[in-house]
């Protein structure tokens, strides 16, 4: 039963990356991200307890604290502080993006089946799901226009990498893990400051505005 629950949470993480794509409001996207991190944390905990790897517990805890709480709160704070319009602006309509994400999920499964990238945790191949989360993260970064949503895309991508890492190496040593979490946190803070600066300069955080830097 625990195994199935772990599988369920991993699949749920994929689903939440799609709800980020499907959300038309920033808060909804940030909430989805928090839920995604939460479900990955839950899956990590379960894997740790099944496989009896103690340092995975630490990763799970960090995941819970940093990605499911601190980062979303930070993003909420930035959004509120800057009075950013809460609508998510996209280059591709939400309907098309969601359908495209479904195709991404299929594609990554296909990729893994063709190249035999299997690495099994609990008799269940996590790699295709994590690859699809990574690609969906990239997709969000490519198609969404606001700086905040690009941060969300980046964070999703990072979560996908975390999933892949858990699946293929059963997590890294604790120090490396700590370093990564630190990096992500710092990255988000820097990005937050960047967004703040951007909104000061342009009165907007639409990344289209950045084209004005071009000579």
């Amino acid at each position: 039963m625990e195994v199935k629950l772990a599988e369920f949470f991993i699949a749920l993480a994929v689903f939440f990356s799609i709800t980020i794509v499907a959300s038309n409001r920033l808060f909804l996207g940030i909430k989805s991200y928090a839920l995604q991190s939460l479900s990955i944390a839950a899956a990590t905990t379960l894997i740790a307890s099944i496989e009896n790897i103690s340092h995975l517990f630490v990763s799970a805890l960090l995941m819970l604290i940093v990605k499911a709480c601190i980062i979303p709160l930070l993003l909420f704070y930035v959004t509120k502080k800057l009075n950013i319009q809460r609508k998510i602006e996209t280059n591709v309509t939400i309907f098309d993006s969601v359908i495209f994400c479904a195709l991404i999920v299929v594609f990554s499964y296909f990729l893994v089946a063709k190249f035999n990238l299997s690495s099994r945790v609990l008799g269940f191949n996590v790699i295709p799901l994590s690859i699809s989360v990574i690609i969906i993260g990239l997709f969000i970064m490519v198609t969404r226009r606001k700086a905040i949503t690009q941060i969300l895309g980046f964070l999703t991508l990072e979560n996908g990498i975390f999933m892949a890492e858990i699946a293929s190496t059963h997590g890294m040593p604790v120090f490396v893990e700590l370093g990564i979490f630190m990096d992500v946190l710092i990255g988000v803070i820097i990005a937050g400051i960047f967004v703040y600066r951007m909104s000061e300069t342009f009165n907007d955080i639409d990344t289209e505005k950045l084209t004005s830097f071009k000579e």
Binding site: E7, V105, V106
Partner: peptide, 14 residues
């Protein structure tokens, strides 16, 4: 409905 579609695709892949 597209989200529902994606859910069902995930279920298939899983």
């Amino acid at each position: 409905l597209a989200v529902a579609f994606t859910l069902s695709v995930i279920s298939l892949i899983v």
